[in-house]
Design a binder for these strands. Structure first.
Lengths: 193, 193
DNA sequence: ATCATTTAATACCATTCGGTATATTATACT
DNA sequence: AGTATAATATACCGAATGGTATTAAATGAT
């Protein structure tokens, strides 16, 4: 090996992630990518393969970051109910703050690519399943601590929270009245007893 | 007027709707459209304007059909609870039946276009709001008939059902285990008391 | 200092993109 | 029957697409 790479591979991948996240797969061109990543076109192909490979790498990076972020937010407090409430509220707050709402990269990919590419169907499904496992663990902790009722159907509730999270994330992209989503989140969270 | 159009405009629009619904806006090319619609390229532009206009017309047609379909399904029974259960279950059944799951054209558009085009943000938002109104009316009927508790927060519940419908529709595109979505739908529907 | 090697940069490739100009064909009205 | 009109069909447009071949530049090892 002789000449060393001038750009930071992880930083470039981060930039690609942000762009795919915002614009989706089809609407993002290689020129868009190289401009955002600050690298030359042949460097992109040499480093990441092709457009689809780069997208997959970006999505994998996202799901890892996203899962650990969710996990962290759910650990960060003593009350499980409050933890879930904070999780939803922070997401809502975040989405109303930014001018263009990117939503969730994984959800965007479910909608755009999962039905047409089994690779992404599997990748995105496994992420959602993983989220429901994190939710289950959190709920179990709440039962053990005595905060939640012991006869709670933890699995069903965790899966419902995933469905609700997806629903809210998508709906937020159409910028509904704040009260709309607030009310439904409150009602959903009332299932955590 | 002299020579008459050889193709059926509504039929062509239907075909365009199906294609945009399945593939999204960016991934659908004019050539795809003319092939599916069975018309020539200049006929498409003469009749529908351009790609975006055609997409908008297709989406408007979809939202109208979708709203009346939902309305019809919710009217079709005596029990409101059962009506909602049927609504969700039929959608799930439908999605597992087809090889490629198209989901909901409106939801697909929220994810792909709403954040980047205010026209579609408004159009899709209004459709979701309209669905929640249909849900509200249905719930109110249930209260009047004595089936549902009179102290039910109809608005919040209707909005929650919209969120859940969106969540389930999106999640189905990743083909999760059937029990996953069944369980969460059951739990969501338990909110209708 | 030279040389092999890997990077970066420019330029280019065929193909496809959305959108039209042009020419041809078919019909309702005079 | 002839003509005006509008729909068809073919061919084409410049621009942008994803992807590379080629050249120039930079660095570690000898």
């Amino acid at each position: 090996m002789v000449r060393q790479r001038e750009f930071d591979k992880e930083k470039a991948l981060d930039d690609a992630m942000e762009l795919f996240w915002e614009k989706g797969y089809a609407a993002t061109s290689i020129s868009d990518l190289t401009a955002t990543m600050g690298i030359q076109r042949p460097s992109l192909y040499a480093t990441f393969g092709d457009k689809e490979k780069l997208f997959e790498a970006a999505l994998r990076k996202y799901t890892n970051l996203h899962a650990s972020l969710i996990r962290k937010k759910l650990q960060n407090t003593t009350s499980v109910k409050e933890a879930f409430r904070n999780l939803f509220e922070e997401m809502i707050e975040e989405e109303y703050k930014n001018k263009v709402s990117k939503g969730c990269f994984c959800i965007n990919t479910i909608v755009e690519l999962a039905p047409h590419d089994e690779k992404f169907e599997i990748l995105t499904r496994e992420h959602e399943m993983y989220l429901s496992v994190i939710f289950q663990e959190t709920l179990l902790k709440g039962i053990k601590s005595g905060e939640l009722e012991s006869n709670l159907d933890v699995k069903a509730l965790a899966q419902t929270l995933v469905v609700a999270l997806i629903g809210v994330t998508v709906l937020l992209k159409s910028h509904p009245e704040r009260s709309f989503v607030d009310k439904s989140v409150t009602l959903i969270l009332s299932l955590i007893k």
